[in-house]
Amino acid sequence: MHPAPSVIFFTVFSGIGFGLLVFLGLDTFYVTGWTAFVFFAIAYLCAVGGLIASTFHLGHPERAMKAFTQWRSSWLSREGVCAVVALVLMGIYGAGVVFLQVHWAILGHLGALFSLLTVFTTSMIYTQLTTIPRWNSWLTPLMFMSFSLAGGALLSGNVGSATVLILVAALIQIVLWLRGDGALARSGTTLATATGLGHIGDVRAFEPPHTGTNYLLKEFAYVVGRKHSTKLRIISIVLFAVIPVALLVFAPFSHLLAALAVVSHVAGAFATRWLFFAEAEHVVGLYYGKR
């Protein structure tokens, strides 16, 4: 799949933003006033910034409001609805925390639930696609949610939770990579089933429909960087898990080191998310002999 920068930016930052909102809504750390304002501002910058970035890959962003209508069937629509509900609930809750020094617990817990649901619905957009066997796994929602919660714990300064959640995210990511590598083969979709010609013999893509490229090849047959995937996997896991955990566990707490841990984690999350798209094999590539 083509790794569109807007979608990578969106999934990484929205994930972290909504993860932070989960921790704020659950009151895992008691803040009020200006300190709380800074935390809520960071969470909203990440979550809303990511959502805005996601509209950049739309052909007609001016019609984006229509995307709230089909929540009965579409995970993308459900994501939009959940995001708005989460942001409104947490906005009211945050106003109480910042300006009135009151923690409306029910509102906070509901906001946290919808924040996590938003990340879950985002992940289901990818998980539901049988056309991309690597994503079509229950590990995909676990990966998205563990990254979101790990990022939220890290940003909210919950050192203990952050350490555990980052390690959980790393474990899920590794299993997703290893299982994902054989997913296309296990799916049973081959050029033989794609053409229905397998009963005659071995099928080979002989000539593409056109000499030039097209939308399908650009979007679905992205193969750049595959040969570096092992290196990139190692680099990303060092950045998003090893360095932050080492800083959290072994270094004495300081805001500078914490900031370094966050930067490293986010950079690593970007790398894994780039791989998430770049390594994903869409079955339409079979017709072009590109799998």
Binding site: L76, T131, Y215, E219, V284
Partner: peptide, 13 residues
């Protein structure tokens, strides 16, 4: 809105 998700969901291109 040109989000492209339907093209992702189609196995036939």
């Amino acid at each position: 809105i040109g989000c492209g998700l339907c093209a992702w969901a189609c196995p036939y291109g």
